[in-house]
Each structure stands twice: as C-alpha cells, then as structure tokens.
C-alpha cells in the first residue's frame, strides 16, 4: 500500500547526550478487544435433604466503579426459582470488589439452566451468565471432541497448510 506523503513536524530524537533509556519496544503493542464489564461466577450447592433444591450464589465483580447495576434472574427449562433475591438493584459497585447474591431454585431430574443478566441504568450494556444445574451442570460443549484435529502438512510445492475436508452440496 502506498501511504500518502506526510509532512509532519518530525521530531528527530538524538539519543546521544540524553540521560534516557530508549525502551526497545512498547511492552504491549496489541489492540485488544473490550473487556467484559463484569466478572460473574457462581457456586451451586444442593440441599442435603432435598437434592433438587439448590442454593446458587452469584459473585459479581465490576471492572470499573459504577453508580448502580441491575440484576435479573431468568430460569431456563428444568429450573424453577423458589427464593428469588429480594433486591435486583445491586447498588453502587466498587472496582474489583465482589458482591454476592443468593437465589434458591428447584432443579428437575434432567437438570436445567439459570441465566443471570446484569444491566446498568442509562446504558445499553448487558452481560449474561449461564448457570448449569443438576444433570446439566457438565456442559456438552466441554466434551472431548472425537478424533484429532487436522495437522499442518507441506504440499509438494512448499505450502504449509492445514487441510479440512469440504462437504459436497
């Protein structure tokens, strides 16, 4: 690509005579994707006398200090909320300081899911966290894939490729 000719007030650094260390490069020359605004974790404990009754504790940590945040709990298939958390307004959040919310649910034999969604007043930001419970706790996406992924091969004309097979249509 041809860059346009740029006339800049170029600053020509003369290192000689400077009491400064030119760092060899920036420690991080990456432009990275936006971080999630919250870190959400959960712990689920079945009741000893009623294995279908689960106490779910959500731990929410905001990356930035925020004046307020709202929490919504949505049960998915196989889950009924028994004891919802009374306040959905988490109030002010300090950066890096966790808040915990407890919810009690009943989980069917086949297991189920619960989704916690955090939003902020005056903002379009939404963050969701999926909680898998009971028999659904082990997500199918974590299953070890069968077979082995294709490995690189070098073609006779020297190209290094990873070959996937096409599916005829």
């Amino acid at each position: 690509m041809r860059r346009p000719l740029i006339v800049l007030p170029i600053l020509i650094a003369a290192v000689v005579g400077c009491s400064a260390d030119p760092s060899p490069s920036r420690p991080d020359d990456r432009g990275i994707k936006p971080s999630a605004p919250f870190t959400i974790n959960h712990e689920s404990i079945p009741a000893a006398d009623d294995p279908q009754r689960h106490a779910v504790t959500l731990t929410i940590t905001s990356a930035a200090a925020l004046p307020s945040a709202l929490l919504a709990i949505a049960p998915g298939p196989g889950v009924a909320v028994v004891d919802p958390p009374p306040p959905t307004d988490l109030g002010a959040l300090e950066a890096g300081v966790a808040k915990q919310v407890a919810v009690v649910v009943r989980v069917g034999d086949a297991g189920g899911t619960l989704t916690a969604t955090i939003s902020r007043p005056g903002s379009s930001v939404r963050q969701s966290h999926l909680v898998r419970l009971g028999a659904a706790a082990a997500p199918v996406v974590d299953a070890a894939p069968p077979g082995e992924a294709p490995r690189p091969v070098v073609t006779p004309d020297g190209e290094r490729v990873i070959i996937h097979q096409g599916t005829p249509r």
Partner: peptide
C-alpha cells in the same frame, strides 16, 4: 460459553452517575 456481553452504539450509554 457461559454468557457474554453486548452494547448498542445507537443507544446513549453511560448517562447515569
């Protein structure tokens, strides 16, 4: 795999507080 986050550039963000 456990959720995600989103925002909409057409909506005015971060107006409170």
């Amino acid at each position: 795999a456990t959720g995600g986050f989103s925002f909409d550039m057409e909506l005015d963000d971060d107006t409170v507080g």
